[in-house]
Design a protein around this nucleic acid. Sequence first.
DNA 1: ATCACCGAGGTGAGCGTTAACATCACTCGG
DNA 2: CCGAGTGATGTTAACGCTCACCTCGGTGAT
Lengths: 348, 348
Amino acid sequence: MAQPKKAASIWDVARLAGVSHQTVSRVVNGSPRVAAATRDKVLEAITELGYRPNRLARSLAGGAVESVTVLTADTSLYGPEAALRGIEKAARSLDWSVQISVLDPADTHSDADIVARLPRAGEPTIIMAHDEPGMRAKQVLLDTQPQAMVAIGPYTAEELAASPWLVGMDDGKAAAEATRYLLDLGHDTVHHLAIPTSTGTFGGGKAHRADGWARVLREAGREVPDPVPSGWTFAEAFKAVQPLVADPAVTAILCGNDHLALATMRAAHLVGRSVPGDLSIVGFDNTPFSAYTTPALTTVNQDFESVGRGAFELLRHRVDGSQPRPKPSWPEPELIVRETSGPPRPRS
Amino acid sequence: MAQPKKAASIWDVARLAGVSHQTVSRVVNGSPRVAAATRDKVLEAITELGYRPNRLARSLAGGAVESVTVLTADTSLYGPEAALRGIEKAARSLDWSVQISVLDPADTHSDADIVARLPRAGEPTIIMAHDEPGMRAKQVLLDTQPQAMVAIGPYTAEELAASPWLVGMDDGKAAAEATRYLLDLGHDTVHHLAIPTSTGTFGGGKAHRADGWARVLREAGREVPDPVPSGWTFAEAFKAVQPLVADPAVTAILCGNDHLALATMRAAHLVGRSVPGDLSIVGFDNTPFSAYTTPALTTVNQDFESVGRGAFELLRHRVDGSQPRPKPSWPEPELIVRETSGPPRPRS
DNA sequence: ATCACCGAGGTGAGCGTTAACATCACTCGG
DNA sequence: CCGAGTGATGTTAACGCTCACCTCGGTGAT
């Protein structure tokens, strides 16, 4: 039953070890200019007192930062959630602390509102830039503290190469691959149930997945149907996809993520269309549940956790330019063929 | 392009407004002992300089805390994730910051390891106490800083009433309700695919869901089959449930959560048993996907987000005993009957 | 021997804020 | 008309740490 007595400070350690507080600081921070004997004395005092450096005081005094703030608009999406997990793991292994700060679109009107979500000016920040609030936050921080920010988002290889603060995967390429796969299966064309774009309104903003899909269709000389916009939730997707599943001419749907795909499967089931017999469905992200739906979902694997880790590495690099710029090192998106895709039924 | 010039401090504001820094502090903290005219001058200086109080300095100086640390062992589980969202929302509305600190079972050996995951001693903390690391963390913080901690977990109504630092829902009651429902449908007995208990090993530790299930079975004078232990992942559940789905005598399975239920559905499908014709499956938690599986999952709704919010309220109450102890105000767990449950096939 | 140099360690000044106390100009009752 | 309040504001000392600079004793070159 440890008494909640005040935690030991650097001074307490110094007194016990018979040295100055600065020497304790040196030991704690691993400075080489401390004699071995002194170091041992100090270390002993530290364990005896159970001393732990106070993070707040440390950053206040202008020491190393050791904390990241993750700015995201939606924690219930699989991508951001997995990326956050990656960031957290990487941070933990270095003993950094992780703050999470959610950008509610409802109260993110001015730039100041975004900056206000940072615990302090200059705080190292990772932004999930996959939607409107995220994109705005990205821009604000880019203007305001470019050295201490990194954004995660879907981007083309060129964008990625051009922006030293950007981390992500080439969604468009993956979508293209999935579309090509469906075409090769014999489908005349592929429809697309799209996630919201980065500006929130479909049509504006970048839509890498939709772009990759459309490109392949055009290249193959196929009709490019209007993509069907959906929100992020199951309910929205279920509603949005109705016209698609109801139309017998639609034989293949590429869904913007696995949630939309699951909703599509259900919608198809309810109108009596079998999957993959009548309708092929391909998802995106390889959300954990996707291997266990019935039938199991064909989807595009994305290693968000590794991307999160990569974002953290890059941020560290940018904050204290010490180490060389870390190279991205995560697997490319990859199509995982399971049970929801197959050749179309031969025409009668 | 705001220059990354140093952020304005309280002194800068004081100088511009022609007052002392303490007066600025008073204005910022809404002290009543400031003349209206002075307050206006200060407020004006604040907006002109874009001054934001520095959180670090504030807590260092012993001011109000305004930050919570959430200790959890697994962010990929729906319950903790939803609770975290609730905490975050509640915290955000009061402008508190949220830290997340993950307890990896692998490096959580000593009590010190747990305390080390706190950014500082006495930091207000919410613990997700649904598994072994969580339970240990709960105990450590209870011994070490009981005033600044709150735990979230499954507990009986009595436990909840007895522990002023506890927040959660009566899982056992909900499991009982679900079991009774299945019995009423005509099943001879109900089998149980169980999530890990709070000690990690099945048999030790509390298992509220399993307890509620077993109680109802005993009360009804039915056979109480051995619960089948599963891990948290789809893969583990899929493997663990094999003997159950393979046994034609098993006509109803209560699953410890919706993930296990989904894996069970798939396992049943693969051995050719129809749901709910041959086998009724009931899940737990009402995970968002559960309404969109095919067939849609019968499950027990749990409003984790509200529980998270409740935990935050309670923590605030405990940290600065000002306001009265907030009353729990979230919906009881409730059975949602969808499509995976039905009467057993009549015996031939 | 002299001096520059180096390694080990100490000292003092912040960092931005709050708590506690001090000060000052008034106002009011006796 | 004077001392006790009182309300508005200023001063000083932490909080726990790091940074920049200083001191001191020993070494090696000259």
